[in-house]
């Protein structure tokens, strides 16, 4: 193995260059499998020092609604990526079985359930925002929502708060 001598090599932790990077993630899905991409990416971004904002809208509201956030489900129906016959997914109890299996796989690799994942994101400095229109449609108030949610805001407010951010719609 060749050895190169480097007098001064310190990892680049991006002290100045990355401080103004911002990420906005719109979570619009309420399925268990579609909740995770946003949470994993938000967590990763925060760990890299990126200012991160999550906006929960439409079905994504389930991710921050106290009564539902721990009960998100996974269904085989309409999801060909399970590579199982679609008819199976329609059998009674299959959604519960599929959900149980997915939760087992997720916890098996040390990834937390949705409420605990949100705790971690908030502790890492992430910002959670709830969509005003979704709250009005579902007749929900801040009392119905996870305590880490900072506020219920309009789409325009969110756009304003995330000025200059990179944006992900999930």
């Amino acid at each position: 193995m060749s050895t190169d001598f480097v007098p001064e090599l310190v990892p680049d932790f991006g002290a100045e260059t990355t401080t103004d990077r911002k990420l906005a993630i719109i979570c619009s899905k309420g399925n268990l499998d579609m909740a995770y991409p946003g949470l994993v990416l938000a967590n990763a971004a925060l760990g890299e020092g990126v200012e991160t904002h999550l906006f929960f809208t439409f079905w994504g509201f389930d991710m921050i609604t106290r009564s539902r956030m721990a009960q998100l489900k996974f269904t085989m129906l309409g999801n060909t990526a399970t590579h199982l016959p679609q008819g199976l997914g329609g059998l009674p109890g299959m959604t519960a079985v599929a959900t149980h299996q997915m939760k087992k796989q997720i916890s098996g690799i040390g990834v937390p359930e949705v409420p605990e994942f949100l705790d971690q994101i908030v502790a890492s400095g992430g910002h959670l925002w709830a969509c005003r229109m979704s709250a009005d449609m579902m007749h929900l108030t801040e009392d119905d929502l996870y305590e880490g949610v900072e506020d219920i805001i309009s789409a325009a407010d969110f756009i304003e708060k995330t000025d200059g951010a990179q944006l992900l719609f999930i």
Binding site: P11, F13, G14, A15, T18, T19, G47, E48, G49, G110, P112, Q120, A123, S124, G125
Partner: peptide
């Protein structure tokens, strides 16, 4: 996450001790 769950040091504290990119 492992440092916080298994090591017992809260995530928030890790961000204070090693700002911006605590894990790295």
């Amino acid at each position: 996450r492992r440092v916080s769950v298994v090591g017992g040091i809260p995530t928030k504290e890790l961000f204070t001790l090693f700002p911006k990119k605590p894990a790295k």
